[in-house]
Design a protein around this nucleic acid. Structure first.
Lengths: 252, 252
DNA sequence: CGGGTGCCTTGACCCAGATCAATCCGCCCG
DNA sequence: CGGGCGGATTGATCTGGGTCAAGGCACCCG
């Protein structure tokens, strides 16, 4: 309700937030590094707020005042060229920690794909918290290292993979991210796995360095080849995971 | 002289190394985070060794036993697809810290472009060191965050920039990396700046997601347009930095 | 000093994916 | 129920950069 900053990207701010101990997103976020008994220290510096779908809540180049932690929903992270060309560098979903910038300004923008709930920390206060809990800093380093590995993988995709390989990689990665646990119920059939795509074809294109048309055509062709099913535009069903996986890894 | 591991990628190993206090690379590396009086702790776990030009000293997929710190020379870091397609994810020069992998295996390979000297730390021992010196861990987090920002910039390049924009970005970035200091002597003329290119055209191509031929043609065209000079294949001279910079940022 | 080897450059041609241009489809709203 | 709207799909065509193919050039080594 009450916008916090001049450039209102915030829809609704609640303070105090639901306490961190009760946070459902905690298990899959950096906050999990803290001992439950220390969570009230975290709650003390966190502010939770909602973001409506389509809203930009991080502006590339703006003063980087906060760190963020996604507790619900999905966002796209992107960089822009002056003429409007866009590269989506990743999608942030529940548990994602955002804002690990070096500079004083954000090096990327973020826009909600779905209604979101986000936890926000003042950078300065976060610094204190890191001093207090080295285990949290270690966790952040782990997360950063993992993202770096993912970023390098994406460079390989963008620099050297064909359109078919890019789409296959994307679908396989999406499917895998649904269920990091080996025997999640969604994974049981392994094939027939339903993969939600909360982003538009345009977003997928901007993530994979392609055009909307190529994304659409390639998906249509995957369907014709029996590798996927497309019950509706925002969901695909994997029909031949092996085939997709070997395409994704460039095995032809 | 004495190869250390089975798969000998190491040319020469010296133990004890030149002590860290005397290391010329320290000022531009993470080791600088430590107080000089603590450097002997670092020396105690470090091993320095030389790598000859062309030698692969990190094998993608191999067990990640070490962290590395480059103290002299330059390496290319790359990922491969099964059919040999290659993406160079970065170049590591003096001060670069390598091996921030999450997994137990390296997610990229590294090959020396020039004769190198490298400092090596057992991962397990490094862990102890990080526990002992949180300031070192903080420094690593900073470095990782900076690399993440650079990786996102590279994704924008690979996904959305034209060949000309890619080469312009590359040359401008190389020129800037020569001299992080604002008034380094090399920078004085700002134009006429000599930029060494220790990598081959093939390496540049694999870094920018292009082919050798496109790299060569584009550089030739830059020369014809008066933006650069090419005294020899492994060096260019920037003649019109403004023009290159606006090309690099996509301003047409 | 000559021949070889590994880049690098240049030219001719080709093609994967971009661009341009209609539809189409699902969904919302009056 | 109809019409408008924002994606998504599909078709036709174009093109930037890839591929294939000759040389060229620098450097090394015998």
């Amino acid at each position: 309700m009450t916008p916090i900053r001049a450039r209102s990207t915030v829809v609704e701010a609640i303070r105090p937030p639901e306490p961190c101990v009760a946070c459902e997103a905690r298990v899959c976020s950096v906050c999990n590094a803290l001992h439950p008994s220390d969570l009230d220290r975290l709650s003390a510096v966190a502010t939770s707020f909602g973001v409506e779908s389509g809203r930009t809540f991080i502006e590339e180049g703006a003063l980087a005042e906060f760190f963020f932690n996604v507790t619900a929903g999905t966002a796209k992270l992107f960089k822009l060229l002056p003429d409007g060309r866009r590269q989506i560098t990743g999608f942030a979903s529940v548990g994602t920690f955002l804002g690990l910038a070096v500079s004083t300004t954000y090096s990327f923008g973020a826009e909600a794909l779905e209604p979101m709930r986000i936890c926000r920390f003042q950078r300065a206060r976060m610094r204190d918290l890191l001093d207090e809990f080295p285990v949290l800093e270690r966790k952040l380093l782990e997360v950063a290292a993992a993202e770096l590995v993912a970023a390098q993988e994406q460079m390989l995709l963008l620099g050297r993979k064909t359109a078919r390989e890019r789409l296959a990689s994307f679908l396989v990665a999406r499917a895998a991210s649904l269920c990091p646990l080996p025997d999640c119920n969604n994974r049981r059939p392994r094939n027939q796995q339903r993969v939600p795509l909360p982003m538009t074809r345009g977003d997928i294109a901007d993530y994979l360095g392609l055009t909307i048309e190529t994304v659409s055509r390639t998906l249509t062709r995957f369907r014709a080849e029996g590798m996927i099913d497309i019950p509706n535009a925002s969901e695909i069903v994997i029909q031949a995971r092996e085939a997709l996986e070997s395409l994704a890894t460039g095995l032809r």
